[in-house]
Computed example of a mutant assay.
Amino acid sequence: MNFSEFEQLLNAKKNLHPIWFELPSDSAATEEDITEAQNDLALRLPVEYRQFLLKHGGGYFALGIVYSLDRDSDFNLARINRQHPLIGKCHLLFSENGCGDFYGFRIEKNQCLAEVCFFDHETQAWQQTGYPELFSFLAEVALSI
């Protein structure tokens, strides 16, 4: 799913279910915020995640949570990844399900891959999800019942 398709879906969901968007979201990132975060984390974020951060910020997002670059947020990307160094050793955590499990992007040669992976806290293992990128993940996890 590309950014334009995601935005169309998002607008349709906002019209159908405005209550999903009542919780406050984190502030949108700037290009400078993204550059600073990438330097701080010593990696490159996936294109789709950068697009999302610039437009929507993160935090509470419909029926899900997306980590943001907002320094004052409980969902700050860098802070959460520093709190879980063993889980995120080869993955960048970008979301959670509220049950101790995480979603992340696998890191190869300081580049986050677009595909979404899932960390199961019970098995302490990462697994594939079938979501090729962030927008497909959000369409199914945050924008559907």
Rank of each mutant, 00 (worst) to 15 (best):
L43Y: 02
E5Q: 15
L9I: 15
L43S: 09
N110H: 07
E140S: 09
Q111L: 10
V47C: 02
N110Y: 07
L54V: 01
R79Y: 06
T129F: 01
F6W: 01
L63M: 10
Q128E: 15
E133H: 02
F52H: 11
A29E: 11
G100A: 11
N39F: 07
D74E: 15
G130M: 11
I145T: 13
Q124F: 01
D120H: 00
N76W: 02
Y131V: 10
F52V: 09
I80A: 09
Y60L: 04
S73F: 03
E96Q: 14
K14A: 08
K109L: 06
A28R: 13
D74L: 13
A29K: 04
F119C: 00
E7D: 13
A125H: 00
F21I: 11
A42V: 08
A42S: 14
L86V: 10
L16T: 13
N81Y: 00
A125N: 09
K14I: 04
F3W: 04
A139E: 14
Y103P: 00
A125M: 10
L113K: 04
H56F: 15
Q111W: 02
D33Y: 06
T35S: 15
Q128F: 04
Y60P: 07
K89I: 10
N15F: 09
Q38L: 06
L10P: 06
F118S: 02
A142W: 11
I87W: 05
E96C: 12
A139L: 00
F137T: 06
G98H: 04
Q111G: 01
G98K: 05
Y103C: 08
P85I: 01
N11G: 12
L92E: 05
Y60M: 03
S4C: 06
H56S: 08
T30C: 03
K55Q: 14
G130L: 14
S25M: 12
N81P: 09
F21L: 13
C117V: 11
A139R: 04
S27N: 14
R82V: 02
H17I: 12
N97E: 08
S144M: 07
Y103S: 10
F94M: 04
A142G: 02
I145Y: 07
N15V: 03
L63D: 14
L63Y: 06
L138V: 01
S25H: 05
Q124R: 09
Y49L: 11
Y60I: 00
N76K: 04
Y49H: 05
L43R: 03
G104E: 10
V66P: 03
G104W: 08
C112G: 07
M1D: 09
I145G: 13
P85F: 08
I80L: 15
R50S: 08
D120C: 07
G59N: 03
L113Y: 00
K13R: 12
R50L: 03
F137N: 09
D101M: 09
Q124M: 04
A62L: 10
D74I: 05
L138I: 05
G59I: 12
N81V: 12
E32L: 12
H121R: 04
C117A: 11
V66C: 13
Y131E: 15
E108R: 14
E7M: 00
A142C: 11
E5R: 15
F105I: 02
A28P: 05
